[in-house]
């Protein structure tokens, strides 16, 4: 049963851009939201630390990959200074080497950066942590916006994909899909180990967890680093999908994806494995419908959705399902083998 769900999911994911090629970029955007929601839920749902600043790693990863991808062929300062007046060429080899190195560097640097950042921020609790992380993302956007070397507010044009734009969309979609699936597998594995219970223990009573000898600061930082790794990679691929990056609306977009990932998790169900995935799919669909049919009112519709979820539907879709059908989730209430116990 479980494997059927996984196989169906992979099959649909592969088939989607082939059956509906016009929507490939939409499907890419959906994977981005799925990855951001899953990684957000590790802290927000499982560990009880509501971060509003995970989008920082999205922007940071995007800029890291841009710098790597451009620097492999040109001087980044000259490239951004020219702002498109000179024509900078990339060979196929330079483009693909740059893409692979850029994405890898984005993931690794984001994960490494999560450790010192976590050391500072994880001293904060509750709303202070949320605001503290949000502050990091906003400050990063403003700082990059004044930094000439990486194009400041002008941004950077990403090296163009050599070949047909439809192929580019498909390649980037596959990269998003693989990142998303690996991310899901890693998170599912982590939740099955002691680490998963440690996250829940920190959520339920952090002082107790410390008192029992759990190394809470190490666990919290590892959790954030895993999230940062995937968010960084995701940001790097997104930069290439968009083709042109700038600090406030694309990279450190706190009010767009930065909020969407939280809403998707709340909608799907906090602290469940599938909740963020389901929430991201439903939210993305809802958002595209409102953006298309209620243009001008889309922010109002989004605001109403947030209020409704927070007030009336806190458990989310998967949380609700888990309560209705606990046996689907392997949740046992009574001991299952009363006969066996009676016999012994």
């Amino acid at each position: 049963m479980k494997w059927l769900v996984y196989i169906a999911f992979i099959a649909i994911s592969l088939a989607a851009p082939l059956v509906f090629p016009a929507y490939t970029q939409q499907f890419s955007a959906l994977w981005v939201l799925i990855i951001l929601a899953m990684t957000w839920d590790m802290q927000g749902g499982q560990m009880g630390y509501n971060s509003l600043g995970n989008i920082f790693f999205f922007g940071f990863g995007m800029y890291v990959s841009a710098v790597v991808q451009v620097s492999i062929a040109h001087d980044i300062g000259e490239y951004t200074y020219a702002g498109g007046i000179n024509v900078f060429q990339f060979t196929d080899g330079q483009y693909f080497t740059g893409l692979v190195l850029g994405v890898a560097a984005a993931g690794i640097l984001c994960a490494l950066l999560a450790f010192p950042l976590g050391w500072i921020l994880f001293g904060l609790r509750g709303p202070y942590f949320a605001i503290g992380t949000l502050g990091v993302a906003i400050a990063a956007g403003e700082m990059v916006g004044t930094w000439e070397w990486v194009g400041a507010g002008q941004g950077i044009s990403m090296p163009p994909f050599p070949g047909n734009p439809d192929t580019a969309k498909f390649v980037l979609y596959i990269m998003n899909m693989i990142t998303g699936m690996v991310c899901f597998a890693v998170i599912a594995w982590l939740y099955s180990t002691r680490f998963g219970l440690a996250l829940n223990a920190i959520r339920d009573d952090e002082q107790k967890a410390e008192g029992m000898g759990l190394q809470t600061l190490w666990i919290k930082r590892v959790c954030w680093a895993v999230a940062a790794f995937f968010v960084g990679i995701c940001g790097a691929i997104y930069g290439n999908t968009v083709g042109f990056i700038e600090p406030l609306e694309v990279a450190f977009q706190t009010i767009y994806l930065g909020i969407f990932m939280v809403v998707a998790v709340l909608l799907g169900g906090k602290g469940t494995l599938w909740g963020p995935v389901v929430g991201a799919i439903v939210f993305h669909t809802l958002k595209e419908v409102t953006w298309t049919h209620f243009l001008g009112w889309q922010w109002v519709a989004l605001g109403v959705l947030i209020v409704v979820i927070v007030v009336y539907f806190q458990e989310g879709i998967m949380g609700w399902l888990q309560r209705q059908r606990p046996e689907w989730f392997g949740i046992r209430v009574e001991s299952r083998e009363p006969e066996a116990e009676a016999a012994t």
Binding site: R194, L197, N200, D204, Q207, K208, A209, M212
Partner: peptide, 18 residues
């Protein structure tokens, strides 16, 4: 103080001698 949103077995499993 126990972990309220985890079942008893989970409460026990995370209390191994760290």
């Amino acid at each position: 103080r126990i972990y309220g949103k985890m079942n008893c077995v989970q409460n026990m499993l995370i209390s191994i001698p760290h």
